[in-house]
Amino acid sequence: MKWRNRGKPFAIVVTILLLLFILFPFFVMLSTMLKSGQDVYTSPPFWFPKKVMWTNFIKVWTEYDLLGYFNSSLIIAIGATIFNTLLSVPAAYAVSRLRFPGRKTILYMFLVIQMFSPVIVVISLFKIIARIHLLDSYWSLIITDTVFTLAFTTWMMNGYFKSIPIEIEEAALIDGCTRVQTITKIMLPIAVPGLVTTMIYTFIYAWNEFLFALSFIQSKPKMPLTIGLYNFVGRWSTQWQYLTMSAFLALLPVLLLFYVIEKRLVAGLAGGAVKE
C-alpha cells in the first residue's frame, strides 16, 4: 500500500514507539545483565549500570552451572531433532506421494493432533515414563519432544514434498531407480530447505520446552536451560544480573535459528494462503 508522503513519517514514529514498547523487557534484560548485584537491588532502580560488570559474562559459566544446562539442552534438542527427522520424513513421503487406503484419515489426524496440549497428557505420560524407567533421563525429554513436534513436522514436510513436481520422480522411476533410491537421491536433496525448516523447528521446540522438563527431570546435572534458569528464580534473592545474562545467552542461538525458518513457518501454519 502506498501512502502519501504525509502519512509516512507519522507511521515511522508510531512504529518506533511501538517497538520501544514491545522490546521493553529486552531493554531491561540488557540493562540488568551488566549491573553489579548492588545496582540490581537499588530502589529506585536505574537504566544504566553505574559500573559495567563485564565479569558477569564469565561468572555465569564459573559460579553457575550454565555450561551444564547448555550441554543438557543441546543433547536433548539434537536428540529430538534426529529422531523427529527419522520418523517424520518417511511418514511425510508416504502421505504426500503414495496412494493407500486411510491416507485422508492419517493426514487429518496429523493436522488435528498438532493442537493437543502437552498438559492434557503429562500426568499419564509421567506414569508411562516412570514405568519404562526413564524418569530423570535425557531420553524422557528426547522422546516427548519428538512426539509433540512429529505431527507438525510431518505436515510441513508433506507440503514440501507435494510442491516437488511428480515428473522428476517418475523419470527416475522409469530410469530404474527404486522407490527408496528416488527418496534418498532425488526427493531429499530437493527438499533440503523444508528439511532444514522442520529440523530447526524441532530443535527450537526442544530447546524451549518447559513443562516436560519440569515434570520429568529432578537431578541438577540433567536439567536443560529452561529449568536451570527457572531454579535461579524464586530463591530468596534471585541474582537477576546472572539470570538476565544467562537468559541473553540462552536466547541468542534460538533467535538466530528462528530467523532462518520464520517465513516458512508462517506459511506452513497459515495453510498455503501465505506465500513464502
Binding site: F24, P25, V28, M29, F210, T244, L251, V254
Partner: peptide, 14 residues
C-alpha cells in the same frame, strides 16, 4: 522467537 519460559522469567523481573 524467544523461548516462552525465559521471556516469562524476564517479565517477572520487569
Amino acid at each position: 522467537a524467544s523461548a516462552v519460559p525465559i521471556s516469562a522469567m524476564l517479565w517477572q523481573w520487569v
